[in-house]
């Protein structure tokens, strides 16, 4: 009896977590003209309409551009920072880690407001560069944590073994740490991509004149329209997340990455 009850409670909670996501995907696949869940027949026509829309296409391209740049910059910075973290003593490492993850712990809105003023004061207000920098700041902690987690799996004795075999610091990094950190870097890169691709508040306050990212375009669209094109746009985000989760589980294991 109590087993059945707890199973039911858990079932409701899991449904609560997953139903909205299922609804988005289902709505995008409808063959009808209205947003319907369950969909009325299956088709990919709303994805075609999504890609045919100039507003969405431009927004998608901008989002992809910003996200990919974010990945490259973030992974390089985060890898270096993770190696530094590894060299620190336990207590220092804990403080360093907290400092590096602050952008994740403070509300995006406040960071966005601060950046709005600051970027303006250094002449980067309403520019693509400014937006790009902001995306890197927010995505950085995700990549950092993933790479730190991956490096934690590497026994420090390996570096000592490499050094004892005559390899210098850079050689040890290239031959030992880098290969072992690669899954973490890939995971971190994926995180950075997804976080940047989905970022809303930062983009809303800092977007360059005339440039909309996909979430902004979707928000504008939803304010006036409510047809399955929006679901198609949103499904893209769900798709990336699913790919991300599967890839991360394969590469480093989910529990280590979060």
């Amino acid at each position: 009896m109590s087993r059945a009850l707890s199973a039911a409670v858990l079932g409701v909670i899991y449904a609560f977590l997953l139903l909205p996501l299922v609804a988005v995907v289902a709505a995008s696949l409808t063959a009808g003209e209205l947003m319907r869940v369950p969909p009325e027949g299956l088709s990919l026509k709303w994805f075609q309409r999504f890609l045919a829309s100039e507003t969405f296409r431009e927004a998608l391209l901008l989002s992809l551009q910003v996200a990919l740049t974010t990945v490259v910059v973030t992974v390089v910075l985060a890898t270096l920072a993770a190696l530094c973290h590894r060299a620190l003593s336990r207590r220092l490492a804990a403080s360093f880690r907290l400092a590096m993850t602050l952008p994740l712990l403070l509300p995006e809105l406040l960071t966005a407001i601060g950046l709005l003023f600051f970027l303006n004061s250094i002449g980067l207000g309403k520019t693509l560069t400014g937006l790009q920098v902001a995306h890197v700041v927010i995505a950085f902690p995700f990549a950092f944590l993933a790479i730190v987690a991956a490096l934690e799996q590497v026994d420090p004795a390996m570096e000592e073994a490499s050094a004892s075999l005559g390899a210098g610091g850079f050689e040890t990094f290239r031959r030992v740490l880098l290969p072992l950190a690669r899954p973490g870097m890939l995971t971190g890169g994926l995180f950075a991509f997804i976080v940047s691709f989905d970022m809303f508040t930062i983009s809303l306050l800092l977007k360059p004149v005339g440039g909309n990212t996909l979430p902004l375009a979707l928000f504008d669209f939803l304010t006036y329209d409510f047809d399955p094109t929006a679901a198609a746009a949103a499904t893209l985000s769900v798709l990336f997340a699913v790919i991300g989760v599967v890839a991360i589980e394969r590469m480093v294991g989910l529990r280590r990455a979060f």
Binding site: L17, P20, L21, F197, D198, F200, A234, V238, F240, G244
Partner: peptide, 19 residues
């Protein structure tokens, strides 16, 4: 539990709009 974290807030809100 983790995958919703990787989906933008906007998209998850939109899911509720649909529901």
């Amino acid at each position: 539990i983790v995958s919703p974290l990787l989906i933008g807030v906007l998209v998850r809100n939109f899911g509720w709009m649909v529901l």
